[in-house]
């Protein structure tokens, strides 16, 4: 179970959020600069909170800040972070302790098949298209089956059919493997497809949470209403 309270000062406001979730898919939704990515960065260890605590499965991640490599999570951001000197295979297998065994295991085979990686397996990242690189990055994130998966605008710039395909694949895996998934995006369609639960943020605060139906029925403010493409 993820149990946290985070406080982090940003330039214009203070991000404050409490979150307790387990084996669920939760969306953090809100306008740009509302503090969504800050929350993920704090959970991943890329940013150090000013206050609060983070506990995962009873283990304390903060305070003090647990080093990144000891947090059993998967983190996928919109930025290109495939290792350019390694092949697709080596990128995907990077997180596995026993790479040879892992490469032949059923999970990696499933990742290769579902994400259509076989034709790319021996390619280098600079040979991939944007969509292919995202699929490889997703496979790498999930290769060691992390219990907590954080997605920070993971599919930005991809076309809608590919986003839908990746979203459906993720949903299937999450339901089967039972990992906790927290996704951040400013695209409500993708988030709605992926996560049944939504936490809406604005200027660092949670302003609404529940189902997408509730959010669409009565958005907490006009900025949310505009983001959801509802008449203001």
């Amino acid at each position: 179970m993820l149990d946290c309270r985070l406080e982090k000062q940003r330039r214009d406001y203070r991000v404050v959020i409490e979150l307790a979730t387990e084996r669920a898919r939760v969306a953090l939704f809100g306008p740009s600069g509302s503090g969504k990515s800050t929350v993920l960065a704090c959970l991943a260890g890329l940013a150090v909170p000013d206050g609060g605590y983070i506990r995962w499965q009873g283990e304390r991640w903060f305070p003090p800040a647990l080093p990144l490599h000891r947090r059993a999570l998967g983190y996928l951001s919109q930025h290109e972070t495939l290792f350019p000197h390694l092949s697709v295979a080596d990128n995907v297998l990077f997180a596995l302790r026993d790479k040879r065994q892992g490469a032949n295991g059923p999970w990696v085979s499933e990742l290769r098949e579902r994400l259509h990686l076989d034709p790319l397996w021996h390619s280098r990242p600079h040979q991939l298209s944007g969509g292919q690189a995202r699929r490889v990055a997703l496979a790498r994130t999930l290769a060691r089956q992390p219990g907590l998966v954080l997605l920070d605008e993971p599919f930005t710039g991809l076309d809608r059919p590919l986003v839908r395909e990746l979203t459906n694949t993720l949903k299937t895996w999450q339901e089967r493997l039972g990992f906790t998934l927290i996704a951040v995006d400013h695209d409500p369609l993708m988030l709605q497809d992926l996560c049944p639960t939504v936490i809406a943020m604005d200027e660092g605060r949670v302003i609404q949470q529940g189902s997408w139906t509730d959010l669409r029925h009565a958005p907490a403010n006009d900025r949310l209403r505009a983001l959801l493409d509802l008449p203001v």
Binding site: A44, G45, P67, L68, H69, F83, R144
Partner: peptide
């Protein structure tokens, strides 16, 4: 640095990040 952080987030301890990511790059 984002590549080194990615490697760490994939569970690589600092020595592994250095030998497998930083040094080759």
């Amino acid at each position: 640095q984002a590549l080194e952080q990615s490697a760490a987030l994939l569970g690589a301890p600092p020595a592994q990040v250095f030998w497998h990511i930083t040094l080759p790059l």
